[in-house]
Amino acid sequence: MSKPVSKPESDPAVRTRALESILVEKGLLDPKALDALVDIYEHKVGPRNGAKVVARAWVDPEYKKRLLSDATTAIKELGFSGLQGEDMVVVENTPEVHNLVVCTLCSCYPWPTLGLPPVWYKSAPYRARAVSDPRGVLKEFGTTLSENVEVRVWDTTAELRYLVLPERPADTENLTEQQLADLVTRDSMIGVTTLGSSAPTSASKH
């Protein structure tokens, strides 16, 4: 049975400090290991990884085939794997289908390819509405799709993690793989934008 709900407590900054200091004193936690983890997810892992996967799929049809049939292995080929990306699924946007990813029950998100999720993705309004009003949500992100396009929402309720393969923008035939990767935004890989649309705050290069 579930426990009684607990009450809100003091400032999370103080609680975090208290918890870390007790665990360090008990020899259960090494603060330098925490520093190393923060460094990885603040500076090394992020949506640039996912962008490389997308660009590779655009230029290499064989890679794209592997990516769509066994995403975990294909993503690992480019060196991205691990926590919250152990079992990946890549879903492809086409002129007929637009994919959108949400986690209504918590905030599941593919860390190895997108990094840690933005606050809006974890927020109650996005989680509430993405499943029942996806076109309304897309509109808030500046994305308007034809009524003829199927919006396909993925509620990531289990241990699969989803990455959207956006459509390659028109007139990009002459770009290199790296230049293509530079066009790919985080939001397009969540599915709230397309790369043809101009969302006001979709860019996330870091």
């Binding site: 999370p12 918890l19 290991a33 983890l37 923060v38 926590l83 840690l116």
Partner: peptide, 11 residues
């Protein structure tokens, strides 16, 4: 504190 709390998950 968010950095520390995040890292404490794996820790």
């Amino acid at each position: 504190w968010e950095r520390r709390a995040f890292a404490m998950f794996a820790g």
